[in-house]
Simulated assay, not measured.
Amino acid sequence: MAELHTSAPTTTYDTPTPRWVSLLTDVGRPVVAAWVMIMCAPGEHHLGKLAGWNDTLAWGMAGVLAAYAGIAAAVASKRPKGAPGKTSAVLGAWLSLATAMSAQPVSHMFVTGHWTAEPRPPVWLVVAVSCIPPLVLGHLLHLAATPVRVTPVIPQAQPVTAPVAPPASAQEPELAPERAPAPIEYSDPRCAAIRPLYDDGLRPGTKAMRAAIVAAGFESPSDGVIRGQLRAEIEQHEPHLAQLPPAPVAISA
C-alpha cells in the first residue's frame, strides 16, 4: 500500500511596503537616471570635440548614447524570448552601456593630463568616436525593421475516454431480506397494553391509558404511575412518540 507523505503547510507573510519606500523608489529611479546622463554628458561631449565636431554638435554624442541605451533596453525587455531581434537588442543594450562607461574614463584621462591631445588626439580615438553615431543609427533601424513574430497557440483537443462499465453478471445477486425490528421488552407488562394507543398518531391521555390497562386485566393504577412510570418507559424506548400531538379529551376518555 502506498504511503501518503504530507508536508507542513507553508505560511506566507504579506508585509505592507511603507509609503516612503514606494515614493523613494518611484521618484528615485528617474532622478538617478537623469543625474547619470547629466554626469556622463560632459565626457561624451568632450570625446565628440576630440573627434572633430564643433561645440554644438558634440553635445549630440551624449544624446545619441543615452537614446541608444534606452531604446535597446526597452526593446530587449519587450521582445519575448526567442523572438527575432531579441538577442540583437540584448547585445545592443550591453554595447550601449559599455560605450557610455568607456567614454567617461577615456575623456577623464585626457582632462586629468594622463593622456595628451597635443598636438592632436590619437587616430584610434578619432576613428572610434566618429563611428559611434552611424553605428547606433544602423542598429536602431535594424531593431525597428525586425518583425515580432507571434505564434498562435492552438488548443489541443483532449481525448475523451468513455467510462468503463463493470462487467454484467449473469445473475443479479439476491438482496438479503430485511430483518424485522426486535420487539421491545418492557420492564412493566402494563406498557404493552398502552403502546397500541400511539398507533393512531396521537399521544394518549391518562384516562385512555387507564382504560387500556384495565381492559388488559390489570388493576387500575394511579395517575402518577400511568404518566410518570408507564408512559415514561414507553417514550424512553421510542422518543419520537413523545413528540406526537396530544389526543383530544373525548378520545382519551
Rank of each mutant, 00 (worst) to 15 (best):
E3T: 13
A8P: 09
T10S: 04
T10R: 08
Y13V: 06
D14N: 06
W20A: 06
V21L: 07
S22H: 13
T25H: 01
V27Y: 09
R29G: 13
P30K: 07
W35I: 14
M37V: 14
A41W: 12
G43R: 01
L47E: 04
L50W: 04
W53F: 13
T56D: 08
L57T: 10
A62H: 08
A66S: 08
I71R: 06
A72Q: 02
A74V: 14
V75Y: 06
A76Y: 02
S77E: 15
R79I: 09
K81E: 12
P84Y: 06
L91I: 13
G92A: 13
A93R: 02
A93I: 06
L95A: 13
A98G: 14
M101F: 12
S102Q: 11
P105S: 06
V106C: 04
T116L: 06
A117F: 08
L135I: 03
V136Y: 05
L137I: 11
H142M: 12
L143C: 04
V148M: 05
V148T: 15
V150T: 13
T151V: 14
P155D: 15
A157D: 15
A157M: 07
V160D: 15
T161S: 01
S169E: 14
A170P: 11
E174A: 12
E174L: 10
L175D: 12
P177K: 01
A180Q: 11
A182N: 09
D188N: 10
P189E: 11
P189V: 01
L197H: 01
D200T: 15
L202G: 10
P204A: 00
G205W: 00
K207L: 06
A215M: 00
A215K: 00
F218K: 00
E219A: 03
S220H: 10
S220Y: 00
S222W: 05
D223L: 05
R227H: 12
Q229T: 15
R231A: 14
R231W: 10
H240G: 01
L241R: 05
A242R: 03
Q243E: 15
L244I: 09
P245G: 04
V249S: 14
